[in-house]
C-alpha cells in the first residue's frame, strides 16, 4: 500500500465516527444549542426580537435584573419552593416506599395503597393546579373540614393571602411530586439483599438501626441522584405556580420562571427576559455538572 493510500485510509477511519454521529449532533445543535446561544445573544442586545437592528447592550440587562428587588425575591422563593419540595418529596417518598415494601401490611391493602399513592403522578400540572385551586379556595373543602374540626376559626385564603400563598403552592407541588421518589426508592428497597437484615437481626439490631445503618446507606446513590434531578426539575416549575397564583399575591409566589415569563410576555422586555433566562440556565447548569460528576464518580 502506498503512503498516500495509507494516509487516505487513516483519514477515513478518523472521520467515520463523526459521520455516524453527525445526525445526532445536527439535531442537538439545531434543537438545543441554537436556541440557547440565541437567547444568550438576546440578553446582550437592546430591544431583542422587537427590532430588526438591535444594538449591543453589554451587561445592561443583567445589571437591571440584579437591581430589581423582585428578582431577588423570586430567587429566594424559588430556593424555598425547591428545597422544601425536594426534602418533602424524599421524606414522603421514603415513608411510602417503606410502607409498600413492608411484609407487615396485608398484600391486598398494599396493592390498593400502591395505586392510590401513585395517583398524583398521573395528573398533568394543569390538572393538579385546578384540583388544588378548588380544594384550597376560601369556600373549598379544606377550609370547611378544618373549620369543622376546629383547627381554624375563619376561612383562610390559602392562595390569595401573602402569608400562606408560597406554602400553599409548595404543598401542592409536594403532593404532585413524591411518587417519583416513592417508585425509585421502592425499586431500590427491593434490591437490598435480605442477608443484611438477617445478619442485623442476629446481632439484635432494632428497626431504626436497620433503617439508619442498612437501608439508607444502600439507597444513598438513588437518593442523591433523584434529589439532584428533582432539584433541577422543581426549580423550573412554571404551570403549577402560574395557574394557582400567577406569581401573586403581591409577588409572594413569584419564582424565577414566572418572573421571566412576565418580563417576556407582559412587559415585552425580551432582552431582560433573556438575561433572566440565562441566570436560570447557569444555575441549572451548575446543578447538572454536579450531577454528572456524581454519576461519573460512581
Amino acid at each position: 500500500m502506498t503512503r498516500q493510500k495509507r494516509s487516505h485510509h487513516k483519514l477515513k477511519r478518523a472521520v467515520a465516527p463523526y459521520l455516524y454521529l453527525s445526525p445526532s449532533l445536527l439535531i442537538i445543535g439545531l434543537l438545543m444549542l441554537l436556541p440557547m446561544v440565541t437567547v444568550i445573544a438576546y440578553s446582550f442586545q437592546n430591544s431583542a426580537v422587537l427590532r430588526r437592528d438591535p444594538s449591543f447592550a453589554g451587561l445592561k440587562h443583567y445589571q437591571a435584573i440584579f437591581d430589581d428587588p423582585v428578582f431577588w425575591a423570586s430567587l429566594w422563593h424559588t430556593l424555598y419552593f425547591t428545597c422544601m419540595s425536594v426534602i418533602f418529596h424524599m421524606t414522603i417518598g421514603m415513608a411510602f416506599a417503606l410502607m409498600l415494601n413492608s411484609d407487615r401490611i396485608n398484600p391486598t391493602l398494599r396493592n390498593i395503597l400502591r395505586v392510590l399513592y401513585i395517583l398524583p403522578w398521573l395528573f398533568t400540572a394543569v390538572i393538579i393546579a385546578v384540583i388544588w385551586r378548588l380544594l384550597l379556595e376560601p369556600n373549598g373543602v379544606v377550609n370547611s373540614i378544618l373549620m369543622q374540626i376546629g383547627i381554624i376559626g375563619s376561612k383562610v385564603e390559602w392562595f390569595s393571602s401573602p402569608q400562606t400563598a408560597l406554602h400553599a403552592v409548595t404543598f401542592a407541588n409536594i403532593w404532585a411530586g413524591y411518587p417519583l421518589f416513592m417508585v425509585s426508592l421502592l425499586a431500590g428497597l427491593q434490591g437490598i439483599p435480605k442477608d443484611f437484615y438477617e445478619a442485623a437481626d442476629i446481632d439484635g439490631a432494632k428497626a431504626y438501626q436497620k433503617l439508619i445503618f442498612i437501608t439508607i446507606p444502600q439507597l444513598m446513590p438513588i437518593i442523591i441522584s433523584i434529589s439532584l434531578l428533582d432539584f433541577i426539575w422543581t426549580m423550573q416549575v412554571f404551570p403549577l405556580i402560574w395557574i394557582t397564583t400567577g406569581g401573586g399575591p403581591i409577588y409572594s409566589t413569584e419564582v424565577l420562571s414566572t418572573y421571566t415569563y412576565k418580563l417576556a410576555f407582559s412587559s415585552y422586555n425580551l432582552s431582560q427576559a433573556s438575561a433572566s433566562a440565562v441566570v436560570i440556565l447557569l444555575i441549572s447548569l451548575g446543578l447538572t455538572l454536579f450531577y454528572i460528576r456524581y454519576q461519573k464518580a460512581r
Binding site: 376560601p138 369556600n139 376561612k155 390569595s160 393571602s161 400563598a165 397564583t245 400567577g246 401573586g248
Partner: peptide, 11 residues
C-alpha cells in the same frame, strides 16, 4: 365592608 367575595388576589 366585607362585600367582596374572598380570594381577590388570585381570582
Amino acid at each position: 365592608a366585607g362585600t367582596i367575595s374572598p380570594g381577590i388576589a388570585t381570582k
